[in-house]
Design a protein around this nucleic acid. Structure first.
Length: 892
RNA sequence: AGGGAGUUAGCUCAGUUGGUAGAGCGCCACCCUUACAAGGUGGAUGUCGCAGGUUCGAAUCCUGUACUCCCUACCA
């Protein structure tokens, strides 16, 4: 195998090949029976019609991070993928296709239409799966489930029948959101409210046996055809005397009652509201409490029906015009004013949603909600971030019965069979041949299908073979995490909890991790209409899946919405390139490295380790601890950023630089040892990063001299598991390296601030007072010279300062004075500026600290360590101040 | 209207038990130094929304207030 890597990371080349290799080797598969502890995540099933969007990409990245991390940590990690049949969405897509061929679903008939939808699904249903592969999702594909699969359908029927028998599913007349083009009820989720410019019409209703009129205001005058009362506030002095009397409904001259309800706001409009219980949700409620008549004036297709009298057959908009014209002719319009209000539109067809009274199936929710609340209150089921608990409980407290029927063809047809003879409804899991009541064989299945969310609610167990008690269920239910956005907590998460408790007697998942929604860089929702949606597949092709993944993970914070920025993505693309090049460097310097037989367990000889080796191993241990605790606490960004900084700012910026002289030097045992450390640390870096950036890490891993079979199934490093190697880390060495880094940085600072060209040679003297400092600097002289780009370095006890730039360094108890003679190098003006700037900063610090430390209460109350630390800083600052002031004098 | 969240550097955001404010990007200057210009080195930038309170000490805890955003509902 080649040990070289191309000089720029090319994700496209690597990703397809690597994914295929993982899949062919079965690395994504979990076992139903295993001695490993189970860890499972069920993918929120995307719509089968859908394309992967950025929201999915974020959602999946988190899930894949967890699955890969746990898989590497020795768990039987199972990620179950699936797709949702998405009733309305899919039906609409196929209907649109058919329309091009001059068909409608009605012209084809139900059976043929359903066949066409299945054809479509079989052709395009895997599209989103292939996009998920591009992202690197390590799903157990053999478990992939579709919500209309046979097993799921069986579960759906069983649940429906059981709840029906319990009396928790029932049929009733209710007001629902009605989409007239679909001729179906739609869920609240499918209603989009839009601000619309309308007109508020003030209409006069004459009071019976009086010459007076009541003025009612409405934006939908045509609904007056279905009015069955007018309503005022019971405390409204203007109308108190009229309560109980009647008004005459104009145009159809019908007498309707004046009722009173506190719902009416006397301050709004005229304080009189027309009641149309069959076409308005509030009026419906009031209609129920006041026992009003419900008059439906619409057909399913949105045309007015016979109750509309002369307006029968008109569309709503036409009827509205005609009604207004007719009222105007009778001088019954008191006022017309422009009015902006929000109107619900069908998210699929864009049509205005009509509240429509119809026969629907409902699920009774109050009883189901009780245990579902309890498990969250008791902490058995946890939300992360925790603040969603409140939102969840609030919603569960105001839960209403769920309309589960839809008048569509694509979906789970309701297992209810209506007898054509006695009208009895037989509900059964198996298709009955006769009516259970009158034994007539004239029975017909209810035409409605179930709301898509009905099957989704069963997803955590229907995907694993329920109602059979399968091994998969025993092992993986409840699943460990559910990862989803906050937009579907109520529609989906809550319902899964209720169904899980009812049918499995246990919560469906232990933790619900709620992430924010992906927005554009200006914080707007991504949508087709705004034209601001970004295709993740394009981003992956441009910058690589790893860069996209880590750009999400590094900036994902506590469930807040995520503003996506391509510029940030480029930053992480650069990080990928950085890792790539670091690996390239290391590998090129390991050409002559002999792979140890103990592989990853190979340990260096302590006596041969350099300070830098001991320091980087120590730093590795620190980062391993940090990553573990961050991942354990769901703080993914903290883990990602810790690794980012370790790799870039420690391993690349310093460690690799420190190793260069040795690597470029002759073959020695010390050189071999550093090679071993370079290889071992890189091996760990690659494993630590794998769940975040799987592709690049697997690619590098395969070229490492020290490696196992595959990164994806290698062990995830932790401080405990890695303790033998980490034992070679040394905190003392870390201090020592810190001194060296500080010295180099201050040399660079003086050079930079004085604009001394890097080509200009410079002599530097380091003054020290104690043996330890002397020893440290002596041992690291070569590194300081190379990295500080200096030609001559003296280490002394004390020396002349003359026209020299001076910097004082304190690391723990080590002090160094960096002295750089500037005579002949620069214009002193720059150095004077630098000194003045530093003095200014110091003066502020000294003043603040002095005030603080002279405060007796502070000294008395604060922790001793805090006071001691402040004292030390103050002392050092004062020393430095003296030095700088003296230096200033020398330059003037 | 009810519920939730936010307000920290030009932008996007970190800041876990209160102890002299951080990152990335952007910006300025210098550098094509044989892993990397998708790079290196140095630098500038914040009365942590406002007002009170608790405390020796508040970005952090409490109260109030302004503004922004999200969700649910409503807009006769």
């Amino acid at each position: 195998m080649s040990t070289t890597l191309s000089d720029r990371y090319n994700p496209q080349e690597v990703e397809t090949k690597t994914y295929k290799w993982w899949e062919e080797n079965g690395y994504f598969k979990a076992q139903d029976l295993s001695t490993k502890p189970p860890y499972s995540i069920i993918l929120p099933p995307p719509n089968v019609t859908g394309f992967l969007h950025l929201g999915h990409a974020l959602d999946h990245t988190i899930q894949d991070l967890l699955i890969r991390w746990k898989r590497m940590s020795g768990f039987n990690a199972m990620w179950l993928p699936g797709t949702d049949h998405a009733g309305i969405a899919t039906q609409s897509v196929v209907e649109k296709e058919l329309k091009k061929q001059g068909h409608t679903r009605h012209s084809l008939g139900r059976d043929v239409f359903i066949e066409k939808v299945w054809d479509w699904k079989n052709q395009y249903g895997d599209r989103i799966y292939n996009q998920m592969r591009k992202l690197g999702d390590s799903c157990d594909w053999e478990r992939a489930t579709f919500t209309l699969d046979e097993g799921v359908s069986k579960a759906v029927k069983k649940v429906f029948v059981q709840l029906y028998k319990k009396g928790w599913i029932y049929k009733g007349q209710r007001l629902v959101n009605w989409s007239t083009p679909l001729e179906s009820a739609i869920s609240d989720l499918e209603v989009e409210f839009q601000q619309v410019k309308g007109t508020l019409y003030h209409i006069l209703y004459s009071i019976e046996n009086s010459s007076e009129f009541l003025t009612v205001a409405t934006t939908r005058p045509e609904t007056m055809l279905g009015d069955t009362a007018v309503c005022v506030n019971p405390d409204d002095e203007r109308y108190k005397h009229l309560i109980g009397q009647n008004v005459v409904l104009p145009l159809i001259n019908k007498s309707i009652k004046i009722i009173a309800d506190t719902y009416v706001d006397p301050k709004f409009g005229s304080g009189v509201v027309k009641m149309t219980p069959a076409h308005d949700f509030n009026d419906y409620k009031i209609g129920k409490t006041h026992n009003l008549e419900f008059i439906n004036i619409l057909e399913k297709n949105g045309l007015l029906n016979e109750n509309a009298g002369p307006y029968k057959g008109l569309k709503v908009q036409e009827a509205r015009k005609r009604v207004i014209d007719d009222l105007k002719k009778q001088n019954l319009i008191a006022k017309e004013e422009p009015y902006i209000h929000s109107v619900g539109h069908c998210s699929r067809t864009g049509a205005v949603v009509e509240p429509f009274l119809s026969e629907q199936w409902f699920m009774k929710m109050d009883k189901l909600a009780i245990p579902a609340k309890r498990v969250v209150e008791s902490g058995t089921l946890r939300f992360e971030p925790e603040s969603w608990t409140k939102v969840y409980l609030h919603w569960m407290n105001i839960i209403e019965d769920w309309c589960v029927s839809r008048q569509l063809w694509w979906g789970h047809q309701i297992p209810a069979y209506i007898c054509q003879d006695c009208n009895h409804t037989t509900v059964s899991e198996t298709t009955p041949t006769v009516c259970e009541k009158c034994v007539s064989d004239q029975i017909k299945q209810d035409e409605d299908v179930l709301d898509t969310w009905f099957s989704s609610a069963l997803w955590p167990f229907s995907t694993m073979g329920w109602p059979e008690n399968t091994e998969a269920l025993k092992t993986f239910y409840p699943s460990t995490y559910l990862i989803t956005g906050h937009d579907i907590i109520f529609f989906w998460v809550a319902r899964m909890i209720m169904m899980g408790l009812e049918f499995k007697g246990d919560i469906p998942f232990r933790t619900v991790y709620i992430h924010g929604l992906v927005r554009d860089s200006q914080g707007r929702k991504m949508s087709k209409s705004l034209g601001n949606s970004i295709d993740p597949v394009e981003l992956i092709e441009k910058h690589g899946a790893d860069a996209l993944r880590i750009s999400f993970l590094a900036h994902l914070h506590s469930g807040k919405d995520f503003k996506f920025s391509e510029q940030r993505l480029e930053g992480y693309r650069n990080f990928m390139n950085k890792i790539w090049n670091a690996a390239r460097f290391v590998l090129s310097h390991l050409q002559d490295f002999k792979t140890p037989t103990e592989g990853v367990r190979a340990l260096p000889k302590k006596a041969l380790l350099s300070t830098y080796d001991q320091w980087i191993i120590y730093a590795l241990g620190e980062v391993e601890k940090k990553v573990e605790s961050a991942l354990d606490a769901d703080r993914f960004s903290e883990a990602a950023l810790a690794l980012y900084h370790f790799v870039w700012n420690q391993y690349c910026d310093w460690y690799i630089e420190f190793t260069k002289p040795l690597l470029q030097g002759p073959k020695t045992e010390e050189r071999e040892t550093t090679q071993l450390v370079l290889a071992q640390v890189l091996n760990r870096i690659v494993r630590l990063l794998h769940p975040f950036t799987p592709f690049i890490t697997e690619e590098i891993y395969q070229k490492l001299p020290i490696k196992g079979q595959a990164c994806i199934i290698d062990e995830y490093p932790t401080a405990l598991k890695d303790k033998d190697f980490l034992a070679f880390g040394n905190e003392e060495a870390a201090t020592e390296v810190e001194v060296v880094k500080e010295v180099i940085s201050s040399i660079r600072n003086i050079r930079g601030e004085n604009r001394i060209s890097p080509a200009q040679t410079m002599a530097v003297r380091l003054d020290v007072n104690d043996d330890r400092a002397q020893k440290i600097l002596g041992a690291n002289k070569k590194s300081i010279m190379t990295l500080g780009k200096i030609s001559q370095l003296d280490i002394a006890k004390e020396g002349p300062l003359a026209k020299s730039a001076v910097a004082l360094i304190h690391v723990k108890d080590v002090s160094v004075k960096v002295v750089i003679p500037l005579e002949g190098l620069v214009d002193f003006a720059e150095e004077i500026k630098r000194i003045e700037k530093t003095i200014e900063k110091l003066a502020k610090d000294i003043s603040n600290l002095s005030i603080k430390l002279s405060n007796e209460k502070f000294v008395k109350n604060a922790d001793e360590e805090v006071v001691a630390a402040d004292r030390e800083i103050l002392e050092n600052s004062k020393k430095q101040m003296v030095q700088l002031q003296e230096a200033l004098v020398r330059f003037q």
